[in-house]
Amino acid sequence: MKELSLHILDVSENGIQAGADRVRIAVEEARPDNRLRIVIEDNGRGISPDLLRNVTDPFYTTRTTRRVGLGLSLLESAARHCNGSMRVDSVEGRGTKVIAEFEYDHIDRAPLGDMTGTLMSLIIGYPEVAFEYVHRVDDCRFEMKTPEIENMFDGRPVTDPDVFQKLRQILTDISGRIQSIKNHPG
């Protein structure tokens, strides 16, 4: 994957395929600690302890179940290549939490990339799922929740062109502000 945001799209999709109707995506960029952390949490059916042990083995899991496959192993190897790691916590029937950590300034760390594109694809592709997106850069925090967006539009669905245009504007605005924070440290 060329961008971390593509991993985020992929892993979020795992949760939705596992029946989640709530997905929380958190991106934490802590430059003073030289760390970038991605947390993706869903309330899907979870992974059994047996499967969890082999969750990042692409050959063990790909064709036995649709719950996991190459996706998590790709994210894990991306994290490891950047002196980082990936962890999967899961409780059957409750949901799954994937945490990936990267060394922020590692030369092999892929850029975060087009988060707006990732979020829009998820939100439009799965209108029945509630998404929460939290992005932190050092001490600044941005947050977006799809149910709140729908409330802003009197309950009109996110698939309504007016609503999703507005949503895209909000997300583009967030990523613009994040970029400007990164351009002006301190």
């Binding site: 994957m1 999709e13 062109p161 999703f164």
Partner: peptide, 30 residues
């Protein structure tokens, strides 16, 4: 996703918004 489905999805959303049609549904799948 690795092959570029996100760009396809985003282009599709743009076209849909421009078309102003209410009988077209876009969904994602595995």
């Amino acid at each position: 996703i690795a092959a570029g489905a996100r760009d396809v999805m985003n282009a599709l959303m743009d076209e849909l918004a421009e078309s102003d049609r209410d009988d077209i549904r876009v969904v994602a799948s595995g």
